[in-house]
Design a protein around this nucleic acid. Sequence first.
DNA 1: GCCAACGTTGGC
DNA 2: GCCAACGTTGGC
Length: 153
Amino acid sequence: MNYWLFKTDTEDYTIDDLKQDKKTPWTGVRNYQARNFMRDHMKKGDFVLFYHSGGTTPGIAGLAKIASASYPDPTQFDKKSKYFDEKATKEKPRWVLVDIAYAKKFKNFISISVMRNKRELQDMWALRIGNRLSITPVTKEEFEIIQLLANSQ
DNA sequence: GCCAACGTTGGC
DNA sequence: GCCAACGTTGGC
């Protein structure tokens, strides 16, 4: 069992969108490291912390689950998509994605400032200076702290 | 809107 | 294979 944090710009997609969709293919990841996490390390059933960026308050809004193994991202072949990649072929796809499924919206939204103030979360990959990866691993310990913060009064 | 940090590109 | 230039991300 692995744990992940997925970032999404709230202008594009939010936890409420995922709640409505129930499940969505996580298209558009165009970073090799993030791709490799999906391709090599994600398993159906892994937990995903759903992180909102770009909005007024960045932070973790809810929980999702990996709902598929990785497979080629169809948008890389779509000339009309902004994620189109002319160097990708169906025989040799360059980019993959996974499906994620809605699990729940957290009772407490966990803002980045709350996370930064929590000693146990100091080393979280997603909080490191200059980190721009949209998909990062989360340790079991970090995940459990987040659960506590999400459910505390 | 600013800007630091970073990944990618492309010339050499 | 180096590295400057560029574009983008994302917190503030």
